[in-house]
Amino acid sequence: MRTPIDRRPPYWTIALSVFVTLAALIFHATPARITGGPDLMPLLPLMSIFLWASLRPRFMPPIAIFAIGVAQDVLTGGPMGVWALAYLTAMAILRDRKEDSPVREVLPLWLRFSGVLAISVVVAWVVGSLAVGALAPVRSLLIEAVSTALMFPLVAMLVLRGRAPRTGIL
């Protein structure tokens, strides 16, 4: 049974979700290209934001999304506010759907994530191009988006598997 203490604002869990997403951001910024590997790095911060917001919406408030977006802008060296605005827009559209219970299956999650990803990338490209004063290259953004969409089911499966209720005798 839910007790009043459960309804308190979960500050430490919000901090945990932000920390996990920032860790994803740090990993996103690691110098992967020094290994001579391909120039592919999925948008891990968006995956983390989406999964937290879909499965535990309380733990990913807009202020946290804003902070993560600004951190990404600063670490990538771009103008501050671009990714923050892109993430806020995409997640606002996602949350405006007024659904009763969060989706817990991979395929519907993947479809929704693809929509969120598309909105984020388009907003980031338009706003970023305006901020920089020139058209940003589409190719690298597309590669990033496709690699993110392809990698998402794997991450989603791992997360949903970790959250599945334990069944059976043991």
């Binding site: 807009p62 202020i63 804003f66 103008p79 506010g81 923050a84 806020l88 949350r95 305006l130 901020a131």
Partner: peptide, 24 residues
């Protein structure tokens, strides 16, 4: 889960403000 629309609107405005003023 619903969050304050005012806060969301303020964050949108803050993002736009950052974009406008944070040019090199």
């Amino acid at each position: 889960m619903r969050f304050s629309r005012t806060l969301s609107a303020l964050l949108f405005l803050a993002s736009i403000g950052l974009i406008v003023f944070d040019r090199p």
